[in-house]
Amino acid sequence: MTGYFVGIESTAHTFSSSVVSSSGKVLSNIKSVYRAEEGHGIHPFKAAEHHRMNAVSVVLSSFKEASVEPRVVEAIGYSMGPGLGPCLRVGAVVARTLSLALDRPLVPVNHAVGHIELGCLLTGAKDPLVLLVSGGHTMLLQFSSSRWRVIGETLDITLGQLLDQFGRHAGLSSPCGSIIEEAASRSSKYIQLPYSVKGNDVSFSGLLTEAKKLYDMGERFEDICFSLQETAFAMIAEATERALALTEKKELLVVGGVAANRRLSEMLKTICVRHGASFLPVPPEYSGDCGAQIAWTAYLHYTSGFSVDASEATVRQSWRLDSVDIPWRSQANPERSRG
């Protein structure tokens, strides 16, 4: 019999609710996105205020669009972290309320694990190298010994933060990725910027400082955007290529908000061809934060026998995804340990 699961996402600028079925169909995925003022980033309390104002209508429409009665859901998933405290707490309150009202168990989900598991569901990836690129994460991962393990990551800011912080410096409001992408497409003038790959890791802070400096010196915005993208994406591409060579994986799954960038996709596609790997980007409508990633991962946890009582359904602002046990995946490493 098909079971239904609802997922509440509220880690940062997006409040979203989604209903998925146990057969892996996303029946609804409703989002409401907080927009920061121009030149500013996400104000955690204003974002939380936005989430509070929109929570009820988003949750109700997610049931309506899925044509699923709230009382038939098996469990309620919510993003426990990592993310902004005030935003996370709105999601947790909504989830606890649903749980008590419907008398259904709660499943706390790690937001980043959600990105990966939804990506696997939608692309059919079996044992991929994962590139997670968003405002909160820039990581290369593979599954081994019961967890998603980090092979490479940023040593300072994320790719999303690099784009957002430069964009804000130039007077845009977060998220700035798509405006920067559009501006970059109108230039082909490359200005040399710091390129920092350390093994499988990358570092973006020097690049950000230099890009801001160029902007203050009066270089054309389009040219800086172009150079910034070319440099940062080439760094990601090189780290990804190293990880592909190291792990010898035959699939590359790309998830997270920045996965929607066409220039980055183009570079990663070339790499996959060079290494004989399939290129599996998550469909654009699911690349950013959404309830579906939470609902689907909640289903996976729940069927592995995990749920919590409302009194334990708290939030965790800092929560690394490589500390989460993934009981529903096996293989990869013969000696499995839960260390």
Partner: peptide, 19 residues
Amino acid sequence: ATDMRLVKEVMSSVHSSLF
């Protein structure tokens, strides 16, 4: 330390059972 961190990262991911 960054150099040593990379070895550690590889050991904890690729060779997690020996880590």
